[in-house]
């Protein structure tokens, strides 16, 4: 079973994503800030990581920076899941090493197809 790490400081958002992904047959682990996300990634070795960009302690950019600096995560797909709809944020995120960028609010169909594309 493929594991997906979902990092978001908002519990309802995590529950939404967990519900959708579990129904698709993935195992979901949750982190509520960037530091926890990096720790859980190291411990849990997820196949896909969904990172909110605005999080306490360590934001999404900080987290991707740490993850991409470690050989174990060089090839792990990491998707930004954010309420920032500005083009500059998208460009910045892709430049920082994110594999995809999904704008909140997500449409379930979009989330499903993006996850499928990356874990395919």
């Amino acid at each position: 079973m493929k594991r997906v790490l979902v990092a978001d400081d908002k519990a309802s958002s995590r529950e939404l994503v967990r519900t959708v992904l579990e129904r698709c047959g993935y195992e979901v682990i949750e982190a509520s800030d960037g530091e926890e996300a990096v720790d859980l990634a190291r411990a849990g070795r997820p196949h896909l990581i969904l990172l909110d960009l605005h999080m306490p302690k360590l934001d999404g950019f900080g987290a991707i920076g740490q993850l991409r600096s470690e050989a174990a995560f060089a090839a792990t797909p990491v998707v930004a899941l954010t309420a920032s709809a500005m083009d500059v944020d998208r460009e910045q995120a892709l430049a920082a090493g994110f594999s995809g960028y999904i704008t909140k609010p997500i449409r379930l169909a979009t989330l499903r197809s993006e996850v499928e594309r990356l874990l395919g």
């Binding site: 908002k10 958002s13 939404l16 519900t19 959708v20 605005h54 309420a83 709809a85 997500i106 449409r107």
Partner: peptide, 16 residues
């Protein structure tokens, strides 16, 4: 950004 965050879960759960 602030409006999208709650809309995200409203729309998502409504779809669910």
């Amino acid at each position: 950004h602030e409006l999208r965050t709650p809309l995200h879960t409203i729309i998502g759960f409504a779809e669910l």
